[in-house]
Amino acid sequence: MNNILNLIFDIGLYHYLFLALILFLIGLFGTIISKNILKVLISVEFMLTAVNINFIAFASFFDNIKLHGFVFSLFYIAIGAVETALALAIFYLMFQAKQSVNTEDYEDGAGERC
């Protein structure tokens, strides 16, 4: 019993991992089911945050001399921010033509288009 309590309340690496995992899957779920394009973008950000938590957690538990994880996460924050900004810019251009934020309006996918 004491052991289980310890597992729950003694914050260790696996707590962070589970947190990141849940957040990642919420993000993935959101990208798949959201109908609003902006919401899809937000969900992508969740996935990004989850990855960063993973990296930082691993780095601070195992790698606190070289800190590769911290560096990686900083790189990823920069890239992610640029990606989001760019996505919004292109969204702006796209929206002007079609006047819709509904993903289904942009869906052609693998189907046939004549």
Binding site: L19, T49, N52, I53, I56, A57, S60, F70, S73, I77
Partner: peptide, 13 residues
Amino acid sequence: AAGIYFILGADYN
């Protein structure tokens, strides 16, 4: 998430 980073010691991040 920033708070979590703080707990993990990644202040800069």
